[in-house]
Design a protein around this nucleic acid. Sequence first.
DNA 1: ATGAAAGCGCTAACAT
DNA 2: ATGTTAGCGCTTTCAT
Lengths: 342, 342
Amino acid sequence: MKANIKIVAKKAGVSTATVSRVLRDYPGVRSKTKKKVLKAIKDLKYEVNAVARSLRQKKTHTIGIIVGNVLSQFYSTIAKSVEDVAQRKGYNLILCNGDDDPEKELKYLKVLRSNRVDGIIFTPTGKNADYVNSLIESGMNIVLLDRLINGVECDAVLIDNERSAYKAVKHLIDQGYRKIGIIAGLIDRTTGRERLNGYLRAINEAGIKRNDDFIKIGDFKEKSGLELTKELFQGAERPDSLFVSNADMTIGALIAIKELGIDAPGDIGMVGFDDFEWARLLKNPLTAIRQPVYSLGLNAAEMLLKKINNEPLGIGDKPVIITLNTELIIRESTKKLYREVI
Amino acid sequence: MKANIKIVAKKAGVSTATVSRVLRDYPGVRSKTKKKVLKAIKDLKYEVNAVARSLRQKKTHTIGIIVGNVLSQFYSTIAKSVEDVAQRKGYNLILCNGDDDPEKELKYLKVLRSNRVDGIIFTPTGKNADYVNSLIESGMNIVLLDRLINGVECDAVLIDNERSAYKAVKHLIDQGYRKIGIIAGLIDRTTGRERLNGYLRAINEAGIKRNDDFIKIGDFKEKSGLELTKELFQGAERPDSLFVSNADMTIGALIAIKELGIDAPGDIGMVGFDDFEWARLLKNPLTAIRQPVYSLGLNAAEMLLKKINNEPLGIGDKPVIITLNTELIIRESTKKLYREVI
DNA sequence: ATGAAAGCGCTAACAT
DNA sequence: ATGTTAGCGCTTTCAT
């Protein structure tokens, strides 16, 4: 931790400039000189001070990522994919858990700016439009992930939420279910709103009358999935099937169903948004919308690095928005009525 | 991104030193002056350049963490707990996925050193003893997590692996199982070795003869859990129960068992090392050793921050090793023989 | 091909 | 209470 470029230069009998050139593999250094320098570096166990380099170059080779909470499989997969890309391109990753809390998000945005990261990827709460706009204006490279912010024009990578939810609910309808409950997510988030819209469009197209008792709005967390599912099935009229808008709430819903002693597909049909590794291990393997989560992060990271390196993303300077498609994985949890109908 | 301390100073009509004092809430600035400065900061949307500050202070307020792979629940929980502590104390976190690959680990250790992080937490592969020793010697603050490195004296936070595995296998024995298979982990890792030792001690104490056909050595990954479980149950003699040494391999084992059409506890008893949120949702809820994973990361992070701030950890300068206990969560997957015996 | 020197933006010792 | 200034460790012109 002690040696610096000056000491190396002295030991090698050259100037600091020459050491710097060797460090960066800059052409125009005699191979004999290079050897001397490399030897000194090795002898002194010297490692370049990236902080000083960043200050001088005004480039940190670091990107920041703010996710909801790495404990969620969704977010940890994103963290992993972004890290994979970053790693491959020689960038470091500063990880921040925004906890889907606007204040924490703002704090972290400031921290990342203060640390002069070269770019930021984040899954926005949707609340800090002004600050994000000022960040963009000041030249910070930003890519939004999974959600948009009202009033912010920014490159983004998204899931086709409306169509995915539609697909899921349409599947339930095709299987013969008619009284379809939904645990929706926060409707001030694009994800929450659009998935609800997909549900509504599907039942509407099928000529099913909307029943507001079947629509529960949660907060994307396990607990609300649990509580709302119980409400749903203990209400006056009981749904014959359930669509849950994200993974954490699906876990909650599964626990609720187990506690209520309901059997799916024995008693009800069920589709979750987000697939799990262990979905197939359940007693009744769960039908689910599989999001290309890894790909979501991958695309965002590649997009960000292109921006950082001033490579063009699209045509002109309009924001580029990539929308990825999902896949419906059909398993046992939605099979019952279909079989009966046949 | 443009304003710097000089511009702020000029705008406020003071010196850069005064701005710096205000920035750090340093005492001895007239409140009137302070106000002027704060106004200039706000007007200019100035945010301190943490890179320059780090260079000057020789302190980055950043810690690095190298985990196996955030996709594992185990590692993402650790990442979260470390981040929680770091956040609370005003530290940033650079996240690295070492992928349990010694070369990647080495690379990241170098990157972190180059970036002059104030400390490093990592779950070592066990292979880079020399480099880690040189890091420690050079004054880097390091805390090892979950595993140790042969030939390295370093503070660490661990799980009591031997006793936990013993507890798990003893439970199987108490339930009446006698032909106990084990999917062990890499034995060059302390975790792999010690868990195997716990297994051996338990069967030994019970007077059960060791059967090497029942001992399979995996690599802690899902795939090996799947394959070895199949080997185990397709071998000449079939075990009546199974102990799996970590979470990922347990998932593999569960898949294998499902594919083989074996029922637990109907046909065999099963205990996993690591508990899952969804373990209770399985058809036969899984008995498991619950590790205090969050606490593992928490302790490591607190330990590291103490080291960074030169607070004493233990007595003298011996390495401090914290060993945390686990809990056996008994569910349906080990109940069969017990009931029969009664 | 190599070196001298300025300066990135900040802090901290010293001076006033 | 505030200002002056050196310098953290590096890169990058500009000379030679």
